[in-house]
């Protein structure tokens, strides 16, 4: 009796449950978004705009000695596994498709698919400027250095003053005064 019920239950679950959700669920499309890249000058193009990179695996020297690849277990891949060495600012996907840096999230999504889905829908990452209208979301590499993706420790801002005391106003971040003007 018990075994029969178990079989019926498992059959029902398989027919209507887990595979049913996977096969027939219609995912909500993410609303359109604009990817905001990190600010600052484009360091790559200052050299590789005119000079082909050396594809030989080697110990990196200046100015590349700051690039430390901790993302993969060592010995890891060489630059050419992700970077399109013939076209600066383009990346390779596993299907040999070349994509622009602006679509770097597609490279990340090859392994971190669930996280990138969250990022597309707004549960991960950071939206900037406004909470309505066209979505502007920061690119993965704004927070995560692609070569060392773990976020680095930071100095915390000052703690609150205990009751009955006060402290000096010594902010970590200088004032920016992003005024509440109407967009």
């Amino acid at each position: 009796m018990g075994k029969g019920l178990f079989k019926i239950g498992m059959t029902g679950l398989l027919l209507t449950g887990i595979p049913g959700q996977w096969l027939f669920a219609t995912p909500i499309p993410a609303s359109p978004f604009v990817v905001v890249p990190p600010g600052g000058p484009d360091k790559c193009l200052s050299c590789h705009g005119w000079r082909q990179p050396d594809p030989t695996p080697r110990t990196l020297k200046k100015p590349h000695d700051t690039i430390v690849l901790t993302h993969w277990p060592q010995p890891g891949p060489w630059c050419g596994q992700c970077h399109d060495l013939k076209q600066p600012r383009r990346l390779f996907l596993y299907n040999d498709q070349s994509v622009d840096f602006r679509e770097g999230y597609r490279l990340c999504g090859q392994c971190h698919g669930a996280k990138v889905t969250d990022w597309m829908f707004g549960a991960h990452g950071k939206r900037v400027t406004d909470w309505r209208g066209p979505r502007k979301i920061q690119a993965c590499r704004v927070c995560h250095d692609p070569h060392q993706p773990q976020t680095k420790p930071v100095v915390p801002s000052a703690p609150p003053a205990p009751p009955g005391t006060s402290r000096e106003w010594n902010p970590v971040v200088p004032p920016t005064h992003t005024l509440a003007t109407s967009p």
């Binding site: 991960h124 939206r127 900037v128 406004d130 909470w131 927070c143 976020t151 992003t178 967009p183």
Partner: peptide, 15 residues
């Protein structure tokens, strides 16, 4: 109410 994000969201370094 003008469409901008709260200051805490704008300042959060980790989103």
């Amino acid at each position: 109410r003008k469409g901008l994000l709260p200051a805490c969201l704008e300042a959060c370094p980790t989103g």
